[in-house]
């Protein structure tokens, strides 16, 4: 199974007609091709269609449209305040979009409450970890499984799966959240998200405030996760080069608008992108 999935993953990069994903909503619906087969828009795990979002009177997103194919890692890049986090919040239902549609596997989720979106298989790991400080690692993980109907045995199995991805968490299982290091907290935040058995994982700045070694470890893990389980990952990052290296595809947001979108390798080689986002790294 894992073999087959990873095969599919390789195939994504080669066969998806990436240009159909970009920018113009009319184009998004056109089918990307996987393994040479024509597939319809259902093969998009996520589709954003003309999203407008406001904080009070300030417009944070302007007609944002893009698609995330099933089984891919997609990065959303941009400067501070470009609207990256807002995009994720709109998808997970934490911020209501003023206009536009979000589709998760072809079903509209834009007016659904966050907990129901989680139940449909989408998890948003928030910026700054937001680990529950007074609960132990294991209790934190258990809260992640509230949207899934499980008995104790099944839950224990899910916890074990998380521990195989993050062995460090197992050592710390009875420690309370606030005593963990930043890297461990980030791992816990991701692991907690995995407990809900998501099909789509949204990650907001997983590298924030972490040492480079830890960032590398976490990104390796994300790549593994995607390869082994075929989980679709939408990654928001300031650390653009690291993010693009593990991604299949990337979009660039500027002041609430998508201004560019291409294969990850192409973006990595792009001079403008290099100047704007890859400079320091």
């Amino acid at each position: 199974m894992a073999q087959e999935k990873s095969g599919l993953n390789e195939a994504i990069n080669e066969t998806v007609d990436w240009e159909t994903l970009v920018i113009e909503p009319s184009k998004i619906c056109r089918a990307p091709k996987l393994d040479g087969e024509e597939v319809d828009s259902q093969n998009l795990a996520l589709k954003l269609n003309n999203i407008d979002a406001y904080y009070g009177k300030v417009q944070a997103l302007r007609r944002v449209s893009f698609g995330v194919p099933t089984g891919a890692i997609v990065s959303l890049l941009g400067a501070n305040g470009a609207g990256k986090s807002t995009t994720l919040r709109v998808i997970s239902g934490m911020v209501k979009a003023a206009n536009g549609d979000v589709e998760l596997f072809g079903e509209k989720i834009v007016h659904i409450s966050p907990e129901k979106i989680v139940a449909r298989g989408l998890i948003h790991v928030p910026e700054g970890r937001q680990v529950f400080p007074e609960l132990t690692v294991e209790e934190n993980l258990k809260i992640g499984s509230y949207s899934v109907k499980q008995n104790n045995k099944e839950r224990a199995e899910s916890i074990d799966i998380v521990y195989t991805f993050f062995p460090k968490l197992k050592q710390r299982r009875n420690q309370i959240g606030q005593t963990l290091s930043g890297g461990e907290q980030q791992m816990l935040a991701i692991g907690r998200g995995l407990m809900a058995k998501p099909k789509v994982l949204l990650l907001d700045e997983p590298s924030l405030g972490l040492a480079p070694v830890i960032v590398k470890e976490i990104f390796e893990m994300l790549k593994n996760l995607n390869k082994q389980t075929g989980m679709t990952i939408l990654l928001v990052e300031q650390n653009a080069s690291k993010a693009l290296k593990i991604s299949h595809f990337g979009f660039v947001l500027e002041t609430g608008k998508i201004v560019m979108g291409d294969k990850a390798q192409v973006l990595l080689a792009n001079e403008d992108i290099k100047k704007a986002y890859l400079g320091g790294h």
Binding site: S92, M94, P114, E115, V118, A119, I123, H124, V125, P126, Q130, V131, F132, P133, E134, L135, E139, K142, I143, G144, Y146, S147, R192, G193, M195, A196
Partner: peptide
Amino acid sequence: TKVGRALAALRDSEVAARMLGVNI
């Protein structure tokens, strides 16, 4: 139990609890 953990989650971070699918 589950209720106790959910309440603690609610207290510590309502946003994170919602994002994890806890019906706050």
